[in-house]
């Protein structure tokens, strides 16, 4: 690991000042330490933000608010989360391991880096690690890579599970930077790779994530996360789907769908949602709507299977959500 200095922030102002002076925030460290050891991340200064008062999990009306430093395990086990946002809890439990979930913060989770193997291989070209060097995955082993939102410069998926749940549920986030606070949808945190895959998010320099807010409602209480992967637990998604449903008088009144493992960012499936409004949630309708997720997909040499798997995962997740009624 390269040399760096470590300081501790006592307040958000302290932390932001340190970041303005070039320090990187460190929360759980489960992404950052790993990549610093590989010398993929090379910060010269770290500022430990764990003492900041951003650990709250609270209910406001039907909304749930998570402080950026709340741990994955704490949110997943919180009774109000289980009651009002079972999808958020499920997406967290299906991610990483019990140990990692005790360490990992929700802010850090959203900013975790890609799991493309070439990103960590210093002898392989990777535009994300070294802009302009090329993308080894494009013609390499790309079975786990994206079929939506890709570019000639990068085809890596965004690995977060809970981000998929947040995007499905229209979650917003509040951040504070040198110029004050702002709020925006979590969906807008993520950038498509385009010609600049090394730029992954829309935070401005020095901006600190303060909290994530997830709006509640009948659909949020009837929502599931289905993660399809190579083993039953402790593995990243091949394809995942977050599905939330509100059914009234036998027809779908509200529906939210987002998918992981397929896009270069968590992918909201709006065409599928629109096709389901006002329809009975039967298998034929769910399958027909799920197929609309394939629009614009561009499979690579080794990930054609995702074309079959994606609509099936969506249909099954919707069915699972329906079964909660």
């Amino acid at each position: 690991m390269l040399l760096f200095t470590l300081q501790k922030a006592g307040s958000p102002e302290d932390a932001i000042a340190a970041a303005q002076a070039g320090a990187r925030y460190i929360a759980g460290g489960t992404t950052l330490i790993d990549l610093m050891r590989e010398e993929v991340e090379r910060p010269e200064r770290l500022v430990d933000i764990n003492a900041l008062p951003l650990k709250d999990i609270r209910v406001e009306g039907e909304d749930l608010v998570f402080g950026a430093l709340a741990r994955m395990s704490e949110i997943a086990a919180h009774p109000d989360v289980l009651r009002l946002q079972p999808l958020v809890a499920e997406s967290l439990i299906e991610g990483a391991s019990p140990q990692l979930r005790n360490m990992a913060s929700i802010g850090g989770n959203l900013l975790q880096r890609v799991r493309c193997p070439y990103f960590r291989m210093h002898d392989a070209a990777c535009n994300k690690r070294q802009p302009g060097s090329g993308c080894t995955a494009l013609d390499g082993l790309n079975g786990g890579h994206a079929i939506l939102g890709t570019s000639e410069q990068c085809v890596a998926t965004h690995p977060s599970d809970v981000a998929v749940a947040f995007v499905a549920l229209d979650a917003t986030m509040r951040v504070r930077g040198p110029d004050g606070e702002r709020s925006f949808p979590v969906e807008e945190l993520f950038r498509l790779p385009g010609d600049t895959p090394h730029l992954e998010h829309t935070l401005l320099p020095g901006e600190l994530i303060l909290e994530v807010r997830v709006p509640g409602g009948a659909h949020a209480r009837q929502a599931r996360y289905l993660k399809v992967r190579d083993r039953a637990s402790y593995e990243f998604a091949l394809v995942s789907a977050a599905a939330a449903l509100e059914i009234e008088d036998g027809v779908i009144r509200t529906v939210r769908i987002a998918c992981g493992g397929v896009g270069t960012k968590p992918w909201r499936m709006r065409a599928c949602e629109q096709a389901l409004i006002g329809r009975p949630p039967d298998r034929a309708n769910l399958e027909a709507a799920a197929k609309l997720a394939l629009e614009g997909t561009r499979p690579l040499a080794h990930n054609h299977y995702k074309i079959e798997l994606l609509p099936r995962t969506i249909a099954r997740a919707l069915e699972m959500a329906g079964e909660l009624a």
């Binding site: 470590l6 460190i26 759980g28 460290g29 489960t30 330490i33 790993d34 430990d48 764990n50 395990s73 391991s97 019990p98 140990q99 990692l100 005790n102 360490m103």
Partner: peptide, 13 residues
Amino acid sequence: GKRVVSCLTLAAM
């Protein structure tokens, strides 16, 4: 009291 993986955390923290 909580289980963690000690390889991914800095002692100084």
